[in-house]
């Protein structure tokens, strides 16, 4: 039973470590997108049509 426990534990620990690594990459990506968006907002002034859309609350 000890070997059975360790085999299933190894599988799930391995899977969760990989999922954790993917989540970290995804979070880093979200931070990078956020930084890019901020950079874009600083450099490019909003166009009149885009401003109108945002005032109207559309997508």
């Amino acid at each position: 039973m000890t070997y059975l426990f360790w085999a299933f534990a190894a599988v799930w620990v391995g899977i969760f470590l990989y999922l954790y690594a993917l989540t970290r990459r995804s979070q880093a990506l979200a931070r990078e997108v956020h930084a890019l968006r901020e950079r874009l907002e600083k450099t490019a002034p909003p166009s009149p049509s885009a401003a109108g859309r945002s005032r109207a609350g559309g997508p």
């Binding site: 070997y3 360790w6 085999a7 190894a10 599988v11 391995g14 899977i15 990989y18």
Partner: peptide, 12 residues
């Protein structure tokens, strides 16, 4: 990833 787990479970 899967084949690493195969080697580990196979050894166990």
């Amino acid at each position: 990833l899967f084949s690493t787990l195969v080697i580990v479970t196979g050894s166990l």
